[in-house]
Write a protein that binds this DNA or RNA. Sequence first.
DNA 1: ACCTGAACACCGTTCAAGT
DNA 2: ACCTGAACACCGTTCAAGT
Lengths: 237, 237
Amino acid sequence: MPAAARGEPAPRLRLSRDRVLHAAVGLADRHGIAALTMRRLAEDLGHEAMSLYYHVANKDDLLDGVVDVVAREILEAADAVAPWPPTDPHIPAAGLAWKDAVRRRILAARAVLLRHPWAPQVFETRTAMSPAVVLHHDRLVGLMRGGGLSYDVVHHALHVLGSRALGFTQELFDPGDAGGDDPSAMLDGFADQVPNLAGMLREVAHTDPDSTLGWCDDQTEFEFGLDLILDGLDRLR
Amino acid sequence: MPAAARGEPAPRLRLSRDRVLHAAVGLADRHGIAALTMRRLAEDLGHEAMSLYYHVANKDDLLDGVVDVVAREILEAADAVAPWPPTDPHIPAAGLAWKDAVRRRILAARAVLLRHPWAPQVFETRTAMSPAVVLHHDRLVGLMRGGGLSYDVVHHALHVLGSRALGFTQELFDPGDAGGDDPSAMLDGFADQVPNLAGMLREVAHTDPDSTLGWCDDQTEFEFGLDLILDGLDRLR
DNA sequence: ACCTGAACACCGTTCAAGT
DNA sequence: ACCTGAACACCGTTCAAGT
């Protein structure tokens, strides 16, 4: 009795490192990073857990590869909106264009990460650096230098941007559950101990009482911070 | 035959949530966050793993508590250098002082985190927010408002600062292993694909050939970014 | 060359039982 | 009230064995 007749999905395809990595990304996208175990991943691929070790050294290597897959996606998206070297022969004066180009690259990166919300956490734990991440940063350096920033300022810029260059920041408060209708409600019975925060929340909530995305629009805040930094850097030109 | 006579360290002290949490912090400090398992922690305390569950709901609750311990340490250090409300009756004009006070608080937070290098990773995974973190932010809000920033700008400020308010940033490249004597060496055989980065590294390394901390001084870069942001915010006053 | 099964040393956690 | 031992369902990984 053949495997297919027993209702078991036989291995449909031979494994490869690339197939393993892309399946891992898909699994994390669908069920979160906690679901990404060697056993579960193998199951998704119709193989046994041990088979993965032929294509991947260990779990750490798997995560390095997963990060690189996401980083390649970012690189591609960023190159599509602001390549280096610039292809457009009609680019305006470099000094004016660098900010826009860097901004476009970073917002494109952010758009990619919104599809992989688990990725920032994984990026944080990686010690080896993905080639695609390095390429992305090389392009940022090129654009900033072309805009008239010194290498020294560009170097500082990479540090200031940090993970923002890849489109994410470390938010300490989860806007998801903190929001609700009334943001200051979450401080109930606690407000007298945090008078400043309570005051701020009351006013900010009042200013924009019915924003669709809750009282903190992630995209708006990300862009605000990005522009604050880019403007600050431009002033050092 | 008593337990002590058999050479086994009998439980010297009764457990408590506070003792468990502080032991967890110490364990992570000494052996890294990966060593922080329920079994290992119990062993350090001279008890059985299952005993911990009487004082802590589960591992998630343990990590929430651990984060709060670190956050209380931060709060205390920050209040020591820049309390709110300000205690000094001779404070200069508020507009000039807010930046310095916020800067002091954040650098004090950073000093604490340098003693707990594993903490940022744990902060990232927490969804519940630590009371001590909320208090620290309340004080930042107070100082900024006192400095003449509108609630709206202060709100943006908290988002821009993000984890920086607690003294850490997400660095994508590990300065530890990337450094060495020659930073551009790490791009060997790759330099032609990343000409901008290679150019930058050559010049930056040359500028400061023998800095003790390697080619990227974390503290310098952190302060550079912090000041860039604070100056940008001040301009919105 | 590529894949597998059994086995090992770990996890976090439940539950009934001890003092 | 506080702590424990045995047991369960998971991990990542080694290794010898299959095709």
